[in-house]
Design a protein around this nucleic acid. Structure first.
Length: 485
RNA sequence: GUCCCUAUCGUCUAGAGGCCUAGGACACAUCCCUUUCACGGAUGAGACACGGGUUCGACUCCCGUUGGGGACGCCA
């Protein structure tokens, strides 16, 4: 039997979780769950300048919002490592990297590079068609170099790339990928400040943490070559790689900030549902093979076995995402949806009844009109009498010739009723009487009434809407429309 | 520039040699439902980048061209 599946998501805490990162996390998560394996969260925080605990907390919060829970890694509350292969923050694993680095140094597979930034910059600029940093002319042997370093001369450590042979990677997505070794030059594994670098940590950690499968973006293909060399130099067993196609913007370039919203948090704040985001990004570069497009996380787990991954890049289509969100939104239970909406109403100071009856009746009307959660306040605002106001479009309707007659009759009818709320049937009757009294029909009848109810000529069906608003409030609104308030 | 990856409607995709007159979804158009707005329903328009092979037969396999993307950091 093969080893139990262990996959990881390894973000660097330098900002919010990007949708590309979220998809990588999702695919790894799905693969683990589909195979009954473990999903590990490792933090790649070796870039001291850019990594912050604040960013780490943001990333964790985004992952939790998405519901991608990990079996091992940092604890979401304490940020402490939890699991049998820790610590899971690279900044806490420095001794481990040190040890393997010395091993490479001693065996001559890595060397100290004493060249300064300026020198390297100069080398780069000298040749117009620069591809990779050349090896320094004089490499000191380990003992000698160590002395120099100990005397205070800064040096980075580079891995020696011998070149010559081709490396073949059996990629889960692309099949056989052939990478010539001299595609890359001697690369840095340890900075002159003593901090190890991504490719080195990643290889060491994946090996030590017994990672079996790595799904990551295509941009890492050349890193995979570097990591493979490290694996071989250290005698580790290589995991299976799957290089995912990139998520692109509308211009087909790698999705980045200039394309607009790219962080999960931005979608969270603009009223998107985590299940919609998960569903949408899952289908960006993967397909379950059937026509079904609306999938729950459980269904995704069931269907995602690591095959059917697409090789070409996929454009993130905002329109389709919005549509998908609206589908998930409409499938939500009224009470669940209401709980999500409540904070939004509070934020905009919209006061609403909270009876079961109101929640269900109002959501039945407004749910089909929402694409994202943030559409709700605009829809509900007209229900709150204190926020009633007439839009520009509504004002035009009020200026119609017949409108006064309609409004007079409407007000009269409202006064004749004594109930707290009108029923839909009562509204129908009233509307009929208004029609007769004012002698107006069609849109010249119902549009003025609608403006007198919600302040604008378009919106939900009045028969369902009117019973949600207190009769007294309706009366106050007509008055306001006639300039009496 | 060098190397790597890649190519089906505008977009996401189905298609693993004959099932393809190329299917679905978003967006778009028209119609129906509706006294408005949505939702819903129906219909329509819309693609195999190009050129060579292989084969009785290529969207599917191979090669090339062209297009697109990525990497070439003491970032990850």
């Amino acid at each position: 039997m093969s080893d139990p599946v262990r996959v990881r998501f390894a973000p660097s805490p330098t900002g919010y979780l990007h949708v590309g990162g979220a998809r990588t996390a999702l695919y790894n998560y799905l693969y683990a769950k589909n195979h009954g394996g473990q999903f590990i969260l490792r933090i790649e925080d070796t870039d001291l300048e850019r990594s912050t605990d604040e960013s780490l907390r943001m990333q964790i919060s985004d992952l939790q919002w998405l519901g991608l829970n990990w079996d091992e890694g940092v604890d979401p509350e304490t940020l402490e490592s939890k699991g049998g292969y820790g610590p899971y923050r690279q900044s806490q694993r420095l001794e481990i990297y040190q040890k393997y680095c010395v091993e490479l140094l001693k065996s001559g597979k890595a060397y100290y590079d004493f060249r300064s930034d300026e020198e390297l910059e100069k080398i780069k600029n000298e040749s117009e068609k620069f591809t990779r940093i050349p090896r320094p002319d004089n490499i000191l042997d380990y003992e000698e170099a160590l002395k120099k370093v100990n005397s205070g001369v800064p040096a980075a450590i580079r891995f020696k790339v011998e070149g010559g042979e081709d490396h073949v990677i059996e990629d889960l997505v692309r099949g056989e990928v052939r990478l010539p070794e001299d595609m890359v030059g001697d690369f840095i594994i340890m900075r002159s400040n003593g901090m190890p670098v991504y490719n080195f940590c990643c290889a060491v950690d994946d090996a030590l943490m017994k990672i079996t499968h790595v799904f990551r973006a295509e941009e890492h293909l050349s890193n995979t070559l570097r990591q493979k060399m490290i694996y071989e130099a250290l005698g580790f067993q290589l995991p299976q790689f799957g290089h995912l196609s990139l998520i692109l913007g509308a211009d087909k370039q790698k999705l980045s900030k200039r394309h607009g919203a790219t962080s999960c948090n931005q979608y969270r704040e603009t009223g998107y549902l985590p299940k919609a985001l998960l569903n949408f990004i899952a289908l960006l570069g993967w397909s379950p093979g059937q026509d079904q497009e609306i999938l729950s996380l459980t269904e995704l787990i069931e269907k995602f076995d690591g095959t059917r991954l697409h090789t070409a890049g996929a454009v993130f289509d905002q329109d389709k995402f919005k549509w998908m969100n609206s589908v998930h939104l409409r499938a939500l239970d009224n009470s669940v949806l209401w709980d999500l909406l409540k904070p939004l109403f509070e934020r905009e100071n919209i006061s609403l009844p909270e009876s079961e009856d109101f929640i269900h009746k109002s959501l039945d009307i407004f749910k089909p009109k929402m694409e994202t959660l943030v559409d709700a306040p605009e829809l509900y605002r007209p229900i709150d009498g204190k926020l009633f106001e007439v839009t520009e479009e509504g004002q035009e309707v009020l200026n119609w010739e017949e409108t006064q007659k309609v409004l007079n009759a409407w007000e009269e009818e409202l006064k004749l009723n004594h109930a707290l709320y009108l029923t839909g049937e009562e509204f129908d009757e009233i509307q009929n009487r208004v029609k007769e009294k004012a002698g107006v029909k069609g849109k010249h009848l119902f549009m003025p009434i609608r403006v007198a109810v919600i302040g604008k000529p378009h919106g939900a069906d009045l028969k369902s809407l009117v019973p949600l608003i207190e009769r007294q409030s309706l009366l106050a609104r007509v008055k306001k429309c006639r300039g009496e308030a």
